[in-house]
Design a protein around this nucleic acid. Structure first.
Lengths: 340, 340
DNA sequence: ACTGGCACTCGCTACAGTCGAGTGCCAGGA
DNA sequence: TCCTGGCACTCGACTGTAGCGAGTGCCAGT
């Protein structure tokens, strides 16, 4: 495959120009704006090759070229230089995140910040419970047969569930239950918890058994099994920039996808140790998002990762800038979490 | 003003047809589809009057008529008969809401249900803290200088805040603090709380004073003053139905408005004892929503109102149906809350 | 291997012409 | 007095045609 340096330079120029202007780019415009040192005709030949290889295409015969998903992929992998954040952005990040009160606050500020900086749709996953450990469990009697279970995780997440007891229990028993679950569970990772939770029933005093059984069921079901992820979203209005040219005319599928927590989790929640992930157009497993690109990464205090965050935008997006921003925001958030 | 019965009937017919077809309706089509008992010419005369009075207008000279905001208003106020829910809808509501686990669950189910039934954007406000009373306050030590304050309200809402203490305090003091705040605050409405909270400091034992001071500040600031409303949203994808004809071509302003909590609260949060509120187009105070209509109402256990819910859609919406649905859903949710 | 030149394609815009839905008005009739 | 049928008129939507121009592919020449 004959992709010499100049052809790559041409592809890069096409991507950059198209992202900037949102219009198919022709050979003349290209040599004018970039110092390629060759004539339009030569560029045309290179374009023909690039098109044959599937990196660019023509919307119609007499139009300029537009990058394909494959073209963007090559651009991201080999052609884009990392764009350092501007001092202004850097300051914006700090200003935005300093002074956050608690986890909710951090997440909300982060998602708005991301949306604002990238001018795209931002998604932030709350620290995953599966990756958190238990800091404290509280049982608050609501009535004689109802408890409110409040779990506080080391990541700052607080979750609550109503527990419907099979029979009324006295206040002292609640105290005992509380002591027992805290004794056994505090400090453990939730993903390691199931056997411990199951063991709880056996360790409880006989008269506590029934209550402990339902309690452990609730714990397992709601906190571990369907591990109750939370997500914050911002910047959907940014989808309307580029007035329907992006997303092939309809926001419908995108908006639908964004309403599904499951989908969002797939997008940003699959946190691998890998640093950062870019999914371009067709590479998205979700059909509704075939016209979009997603840049996502994990974040967490220090080197550990507790959740994911990212942005979603048109395939025609400023990848270097977006990547830099996402990475920077993730790092800042990580530091913020580490402080707590 | 000469609006006899027939002219009103004509207006009603225009609204109904336009809502159904989304196309300007002419005099011929009108007499064909509705038993008005008069000729198109007569209808035309009536239309001329209606137009003069500002209830309908012509998009352009050779087109049919379209209702104005004022026309919709008249329709809603005087011309629409209440449309009873279909048994299918009724069943949908029950099926959807039965089995909700806790407040979060109720709110999420409700907002999705509303969006689905009305095929519009649904908004549900969590029970307002200002209208809740304190059921329990929990203080969980995070470190020697940090407490997690967890408040459980009678409406089922649970809020937490991190409290940064001025100096380390021992565990017994936390217990004392907990006892004290619960003693004084449990059972009070949050809106009546401020004097009580302020009094707390004086009632605390001397060595508790500093901690109690910051604690009461947090209580006042976060739970009472900026009373921390929460909102759930669903169905934004429904904005794209009617393909850009509604909302004069751009979803932008709508999406922007929907991202602002403050705006949403204005929309549905101003809960008066009034049963149900319809804001049509221009009647909306928010500029971005001048092309939309909002149907909202309060909900709560029994006769009391703890929060608002509603839907937002194009001015060209099925008002009777939407109103019926919103009202029904609010009632069901109220019943559900009453059970807890 | 690159370049200038040239023929060709094809979307875009402007313009003219036709069609038809819908109107407003008026004279005649119940 | 109120309704109706008839008629002239308006104007947007659609169609077809023509010219423009950006952009290409190809080829012969250096």
């Amino acid at each position: 495959m004959g992709l010499d340096d100049r052809k790559l330079a041409v592809l890069r120029a096409i991507v950059e120009d198209y992202v900037a202007t949102q219009e198919p780019v022709g050979s003349r415009a290209l040599v004018e704006r970039h110092q390629l040192g060759v004539s339009p005709a030569t560029v045309r030949n290179d374009m023909a090759v690039l098109e044959e290889e599937g990196y660019i295409r023509q919307p119609h015969t007499s139009a300029g070229r537009v990058p394909t998903d494959r073209g963007y992929r090559l651009f991201v992998d080999r052609l884009s230089r990392v764009k350092p954040l501007s001092p202004a952005e850097r300051r914006a990040i700090e200003r935005f995140l300093v002074g956050a009160l608690d986890l909710d606050d951090v997440v909300h500020r982060t998602v708005r910040l991301l949306a604002q900086l990238t001018r795209q749709v931002a998604v932030v996953q709350y620290p995953s419970l599966a990756r958190s450990s238990v800091r404290h469990l509280e049982l608050v009697p609501i009535s004689t047969t109802r408890l409110m279970l409040v779990m506080i995780a080391d990541t700052g997440r607080v979750e609550q569930r109503l527990v419907e007891l099979p029979a009324p229990i006295p206040a002292e028993d609640v105290t005992d239950l509380r002591r027992l679950v805290n004794e056994k569970l505090v400090g453990t990772r939730l993903s390691d918890t199931p056997p411990l939770v199951e063991a709880l029933v056996d360790e409880a005093a006989p008269q506590l058994r029934p209550a402990m059984t339902t309690l452990s069921t609730v714990l397992l079901e709601t906190l571990v099994e369907r591990h109750e992820e939370r997500i914050a979203l911002a910047g959907t209005a940014n989808l309307t920039r580029g007035g329907l040219l992006d997303f092939q005319g309809s926001l419908r599928p995108i908006l639908e996808a964004l309403e599904e927590e499951v989908v969002l989790l797939k997008l940003i929640g699959e946190v691998e140790p890998s640093t950062l992930r870019v999914r371009i157009g067709d590479e998205n497993e979700i059909d509704n998002l075939r016209a979009a690109s997603v840049v996502s990464t994990g974040y967490g205090p220090g080197a550990t990762i507790v959740g994911g965050l990212g942005v979603l935008g048109p395939t025609r997006m400023d990848y270097p800038g977006t990547i830099a921003t996402v990475r920077a925001v993730a790092r800042y958030v990580g530091e913020l979490l580490a402080q707590n």
